[in-house]
Amino acid sequence: MKITKQLSDTKFEIELEPHDMRNEQSIRVAHDYVRFVGNSGIQTNGSLTVDGPSAWCSNWIRTQHEVTIDIRDMVKFVLPLLNKNEYCTEEHLLNEDGTPNYTWGNSVIFFSENGEEKVYIRLDRSDEWTIIPRSVYNYLKNNNK
């Protein structure tokens, strides 16, 4: 997403880019930072409805966002905070009857492991996930259009 025009101090015209339409995420761990990239979107003001390939629903458009956290802050604060949070446990991922919860939507997450680019894939309503090399993912994606 790029700003193409400033209309006022708080209003801007934007142009979406092809990567804004994808529902993919990535996690990059480098020697001095951790970066999360995802397409969480932007909500309209309620009176505006949108349609077309950028629309997630009538009042929401996909846009790519990223968050970069310094490695020291990640190790000393973020990881301990997440590890002690009740929502970041295996138990929270289950319904009271023991069936998987929070499985709506497909997940495609890019990451690097031991220097190899990989992809984590989980299909909608599935609790199962698969990890494949990114080269295989790219090949399948580009040859199944």
Rank of each mutant, 00 (worst) to 15 (best):
W129M: 03
H92F: 12
S135M: 03
D124I: 00
Y139R: 11
V136W: 07
L123S: 07
L79R: 02
D9H: 14
N95G: 06
T130K: 14
H31C: 10
E86Y: 04
W60P: 00
T99F: 03
D73C: 04
G38T: 02
N83K: 14
T44I: 04
H92I: 01
V78N: 02
N95S: 09
L7C: 04
M74D: 02
V75K: 05
E113W: 06
A55G: 04
V34A: 05
T99W: 02
E24K: 06
E128G: 05
R62K: 14
F110N: 01
K5W: 05
V50T: 12
Y33N: 09
R72S: 15
N95H: 15
H92E: 05
P100S: 11
G105K: 02
E91N: 11
K141E: 15
E17I: 04
N23D: 07
V108K: 10
A55P: 02
G52V: 11
M74S: 06
K118Q: 15
E96W: 08
I69V: 15
V37E: 14
S135A: 13
I3P: 00
R122A: 09
F12S: 00
D127C: 10
L81F: 14
H19Q: 03
R35K: 08
G38S: 07
W56L: 15
N106T: 03
E13I: 08
V29I: 15
N83W: 09
D51I: 13
S126N: 10
N23L: 08
K145V: 08
P133K: 09
L94A: 07
A55L: 06
M21Y: 15
Y87L: 12
I27R: 00
T44N: 03
K141P: 08
W56S: 13
T49H: 03
D70S: 02
S47E: 15
P80A: 10
H65P: 01
N95M: 13
E113R: 10
N143S: 11
T49L: 01
N45R: 11
L81A: 13
S8C: 06
Y102W: 13
E66D: 13
W104R: 12
V136F: 12
K5E: 15
G52D: 10
E90M: 04
A30I: 00
S26G: 01
T4C: 11
D97Y: 04
S112P: 02
S8A: 09
E128Y: 06
P133E: 09
V108Q: 07
R125L: 08
I3T: 05
Y139W: 13
S126M: 05
P133W: 08
T4M: 11
G98L: 06
W60A: 01
T89D: 04
I3C: 01
I121C: 03
I121E: 02
D51M: 12
S40P: 07
S26Q: 00
F111G: 06
L7V: 10
T10F: 08
